[in-house]
Write a protein that binds this DNA or RNA. Structure first.
Length: 256
DNA sequence: ATGGTTGCGAAGCAA
């Protein structure tokens, strides 16, 4: 079973690249973020033609998360719940092929002294609470998406250059660890130890070609899935060519 | 170096 995550930065703009990628990567489940498309305008037919059932949680202009699955989509949940401010459409969950799949888009946080940064930490805390309420660590669970947090310094091109900025601060990393402490494994990192492996590169200033990126797109697996994980990949090739997203897709392969 | 680029939507904001 291949489970992928990709911040597509507008599914409308990226649909040709997403169709192309589904065609050659053949994931069973693809979690997308920043679909930037309202539910009514979601390209469900195009993805259905490729064999994927889809669910979107979007209100149009910003954010938006989706799941495409060729293993079915049941028990869909949009957002944390009616009484929780989720800061836009940032979470959708569904059961796909027996796995509880969450596609998440963590708030960016902007500047560390901003209200947005505080809201980011609060959102991560809410995610921890949500997972605890809706799943057990012994369940097959994946939290996949754009976390907007680089877990360690080796997930950043130059820790000194971004020191003190969002994505790398200790409170953000601590919030991520709190989620992992519930019983989730950053399986890409447990397979590959080296630095220089990034999933996002700013469009500006030729950062991709300068290898100035961060690893902020993660697939956190509960233990029953983590022990089945033998391979993971960040598909840098999908960051190249015509009209790429600023993020590359990431996937994990689970043994049957 | 406070720049640079992309998407949305039609100016400026968010990333």
């Amino acid at each position: 079973m291949r489970i992928a995550t990709w911040n597509v930065n507008s599914l409308t703009a990226r649909l040709p690249r997403v169709e192309e990628w589904l065609g050659y990567a053949q994931p069973d489940v693809l979690c997308m973020q920043e679909t930037k498309v309202a539910d009514g305008a979601f390209p469900a037919m195009a993805l259905s033609a490729l064999g994927y059932e889809t669910v979107n949680h979007g209100d149009g202009r910003w954010n938006g998360v989706a799941i495409a699955s060729r293993l079915g989509v049941t028990d869909v949940q949009h957002g944390f719940g009616p009484d929780v401010d989720e800061q836009g459409c940032r979470l959708v969950a569904a059961t796909c092929g027996g796995v509880r799949v969450h596609s998440i888009y963590v708030p960016n946080g902007r500047a560390v002294d901003s209200e947005f940064y505080k809201a980011k930490l609060a959102w991560l805390d809410e995610l921890r609470r949500f997972v605890d309420l809706t799943c057990a660590p012994s369940d097959p669970v994946v939290i996949a998406g754009d976390f907007n947090v680089a877990p360690e310094d080796k997930d950043v091109w130059d820790p000194a250059e971004v020191s003190g900025a969002t994505h790398v601060t200790e409170p953000e990393r601590s919030a991520l660890r709190a989620l992992e402490d519930w019983g989730l494994v950053d399986s890409f990192r447990s397979l590959y130890d080296q630095d220089g492996l990034y999933s996002w590169w700013d469009y500006r200033a030729g950062n991709f070609h300068k290898h100035k990126g961060m690893r902020i797109d993660l697939l956190l697996l509960s233990e029953p899935l983590a022990r089945r994980c033998r391979y993971a990949l960040i598909d840098r090739n999908a960051r190249k060519g015509r009209q790429p997203s600023d993020h590359a897709p990431v996937f994990v392969d689970l043994d049957d």
